[in-house]
Design a protein around this nucleic acid. Sequence first.
DNA 1: AATGAATGAGCCTTCATTCAT
DNA 2: TATGAATGAAGGCTCATTCAT
Lengths: 195, 195, 195, 195
Amino acid sequence: MTSSKKPDKYYAILEGAMKVFAENGFHKSQVSRIAKEAGVADGTIYLYFKKKEDILTSLFQEKLGELVEKFNRAVDESSSAKDALRKICEIHFSELENNIHMAYLTQIELRQSDLELRKEIGLALKRYIILIENILEKGKLDGSFRPDLDVKLVRLLIFGGMDEVVTSWLISGQKYSLTAQVGPTLDFFMHGIEK
Amino acid sequence: MTSSKKPDKYYAILEGAMKVFAENGFHKSQVSRIAKEAGVADGTIYLYFKKKEDILTSLFQEKLGELVEKFNRAVDESSSAKDALRKICEIHFSELENNIHMAYLTQIELRQSDLELRKEIGLALKRYIILIENILEKGKLDGSFRPDLDVKLVRLLIFGGMDEVVTSWLISGQKYSLTAQVGPTLDFFMHGIEK
Amino acid sequence: MTSSKKPDKYYAILEGAMKVFAENGFHKSQVSRIAKEAGVADGTIYLYFKKKEDILTSLFQEKLGELVEKFNRAVDESSSAKDALRKICEIHFSELENNIHMAYLTQIELRQSDLELRKEIGLALKRYIILIENILEKGKLDGSFRPDLDVKLVRLLIFGGMDEVVTSWLISGQKYSLTAQVGPTLDFFMHGIEK
Amino acid sequence: MTSSKKPDKYYAILEGAMKVFAENGFHKSQVSRIAKEAGVADGTIYLYFKKKEDILTSLFQEKLGELVEKFNRAVDESSSAKDALRKICEIHFSELENNIHMAYLTQIELRQSDLELRKEIGLALKRYIILIENILEKGKLDGSFRPDLDVKLVRLLIFGGMDEVVTSWLISGQKYSLTAQVGPTLDFFMHGIEK
DNA sequence: AATGAATGAGCCTTCATTCAT
DNA sequence: TATGAATGAAGGCTCATTCAT
């Protein structure tokens, strides 16, 4: 836990930001609005964050940290590589389905940033991507996955596929169940489309 | 060609915008900078576009239109559903690999927009997504693809996978060949990861 | 008639301007809007008027010219100074009551101008003011008006009084009859308020 | 005093605006110029006023408020309706004669506004107009003024007359004494022009 | 640590005017 | 004369950030 000693206001600001960002998007969210939502003065925000953008990245890292914890625990408890992949997909979909603010944050707001910030976010995502990579490696080793798998590539195809499914579901207005897509998604990842 | 009769300045502005957006990102690109790049006066831009944002969406639709043309031609000439899918992936990767500005535009800039704009972009992307869907349907019909395929889901998994591969390649600094990923990508789409 | 040889478009532009100014006010009226209303191209306006402001002053002088004609004829036909003053007031009120566009122009738009333009307008108004002054002088001479009248001052008090009555009527939304005020107004001018 | 608790900067901005408006007119006065004159940053103005136009109306209401105070005190101390009317005219003329900036503001700048703003100004002026009306009513009651006086009309004739005298004096370049006009003006209001 | 009033750089957009045709 | 596409100066307003208290 890197953040265990951060003061309450730090989290209050992050919570306020999460709400305001989700409602208005990053560029249309004023710092003063976040301050009001967090119940602090405008200037106070700058005691905890250097720039407005830092709130966004901190928020992401904080939330992603929690998520990766869950992913790790699930993978540890899994009986096989295939089972681990299913758990990853289950958690990925269910966590975002059950937390719309978080979904907006990851699928919409975090994309609203320039290349530099995107790199930083990519860095934070790395832990998640590597988790998938490890599962793929394990599957290759125990013989359940193809031995010629390009793990660097496939981890992107898997992550990108899930990511797009979530974004599409979000933009559509969450009209259908996201978790119901876990089965068919896993199926595609495992067997592809060829008969 | 819906845009064949647009005056030269319209395209000059779009070209200027493409360059400026790719270099600085949408929010950090001044309209006056685009005007200078296009060789027109600031005000002239507003004879062709209502708002700054309209330049971005028009640019996207113009470029995507050209791309979809290429996709359509390739699919028409393809011998099978599998071949069509390969062509799609080939064009998707090669076009963006050979046009860095366009790649920045689609992978970075266009994501820097609020929900409303994202919906508009999603609408424009629909044509591409449906193209993929048609290929999947065709493969199901001729028996080369699994009969139980959820095309609505798989089209997203395929598009999302390719999209992520491109973004990752772009953010990494284009250190490796994107087109070299076509083979393994197709392989994953066809057979999945299970042995 | 100074304007008898002006081409049709000159008048078309003035008519268009009158309508547009009355609807939106001088500062919120675009030249292009006037051009459209007049059925000419934007640039054509500048063949007849040097600047946007010139349209306003020309319009005023043109219209005031017509009005002063009417005032002059009425005064010529009047039997006495008192009768002349009544006719002035009647025409002043009825002309504006029957021509709302003209009323907006004189009471609202023409005031929306800087000091320099105000002086020019004042100059155009001079003919009207002098008309009132002449009536006052005549009344002094024929003994029907007080011999100690300060005509330079009273002409302003009379004009200003009528002007305010019109403006008040206009701003109120023309809820009552303006011409019905002629009688009491004359009464005040003739006898004042003291018993 | 409704404004007694407004912070110093509020008044500093109003003073700056008064000067700048009087010198250049409302439309030609930049907000940044007012800020500089007031010794504050541009943005500070928007902490106290919503829009540029609000500075104008606030200025008017502040100043008119002060003036109406003076009018009220004078009327209270007056011995008769006629005396009250004289005091009104005296203050009206002398205040504007002794405060050229204020005179420009009321006679020129405040007229440079569209219908909507004019209505707002009319509303603010109401208090003054009603003051005159009350004097007229009082004079009718105590028998010193005509019993058949149309107070709603005459109050406008009186206000309009004085207003025009001030404007004319201002536009002429203040070449003569305005307060010297009080006597003859009152005379006209009391007896009219008939012998 | 906390405040929030104050700052001032920055920019999109409008629109009167011009000029090549 | 007439056009209308093109110009480009100009400025109101926002809002991330600072700093005196």
